[in-house]
């Protein structure tokens, strides 16, 4: 870990009458794996979209690669891999795994130019890294939810990003597959030295994988190692329900356990 790659300085997002994120101050170091947690509507997705420059701040600043996010040029955007919250792709949609992953190269290639042999090779390597070599020519819609998420991770990797933003990548996937997917993300984080921001509801699932957690509910309530953030006091404040934290650090909120 070295320099901060992302800096939120008292950054607020939304509309003056409906603030989605209020005065967020947070620095994220290069090579860090950070989990963004919080209840529904707490601004987790807004935080990622702000980093992509899709939502400008109404006050304060947010910078990535030392550049204001809302002024990001195409070549900077290409350095951010993004996996949005997704529904399953229609079974009949005519798109192969290779075609979907190659799309990750398009912004780097630029307008008016066709993908070269090198771009094809990068896409193939990304598919391999995501563990999908056998599915290269398969229709995307024929894959399971977990496999489709791997394809989208491969597409993000094909951008050759420095930062990977993942918005609820494990939603709608069975528990063993969720774990496999998170292990893949962790492996990619380590081998490719990526800075990873992962938004999730699933506190207990994410804890073993991250360096730090950021707990949001419009404001940033806490940011730090899981042990410091996942305390009964802080979680009760944010979730507004009875919270139990077991000796092994397992979080149970109200009658619903986050596992």
């Amino acid at each position: 870990m070295a320099e901060p790659i992302i800096r939120f300085s008292k950054a607020s997002f939304g509309f003056p009458h409906r603030i989605a994120l209020d005065e967020i101050t947070l620095e994220i170091m290069e090579g860090e794996f950070i989990g963004i947690i919080g209840p529904n509507g707490s601004g987790k997705t807004t935080l990622l979209r702000a980093l992509l420059g899709l939502i400008p701040p109404i006050s304060g600043q947010v910078r990535i690669f030392d550049c204001a996010c809302e002024k990001l040029r195409c070549r900077h955007r290409a350095r951010i891999g993004y996996l949005p919250q997704k529904e399953l792709v229609d079974e009949n949609f005519p798109l192969t795994v290779f075609e979907a992953v190659l799309m990750g190269r398009f912004s780097s290639i630029g307008l008016f130019r066709r993908p070269s042999r090198a771009d094809h090779e990068i896409a193939r390597r990304a598919i391999e890294e995501a563990g999908l070599s056998d599915c290269l020519d398969m229709p995307l819609g024929h894959l399971s939810g977990g496999q489709q998420q791997r394809v989208f991770i491969a597409r993000a990797l094909a951008q050759q990003p420095q930062v990977l933003l993942l918005d609820e990548p494990t939603t709608g996937i069975d528990l063993p597959t969720q774990r496999t997917l998170l292990e893949l993300i962790k492996k990619l984080h380590e081998t490719l030295h990526l800075t990873v921001l992962l938004v999730t509801h699933d506190i207990n699932m994410i804890v073993p994988f991250v360096n730090r957690l950021a707990l949001l509910k419009t404001q940033l309530y806490a940011a730090g190692p899981p042990k410091e953030v996942l305390t009964k006091e802080i979680l009760s404040q944010v979730y507004g329900k009875e919270v139990m934290v077991t000796e092994k650090g397992f979080v149970i909120v109200g009658d619903y356990h986050h596992a």
Binding site: L54, R75, R77, M103
Partner: peptide, 23 residues
């Protein structure tokens, strides 16, 4: 012909195309 790859991307997923830096 000129914008084929970009049109392909936005036909599949406009939000992703925008996020990856395509206009």
């Amino acid at each position: 012909f000129l914008f084929y790859k970009e049109l392909q991307f936005i036909a599949f997923d406009q939000e992703m195309a925008e996020a990856s830096g395509i206009p």
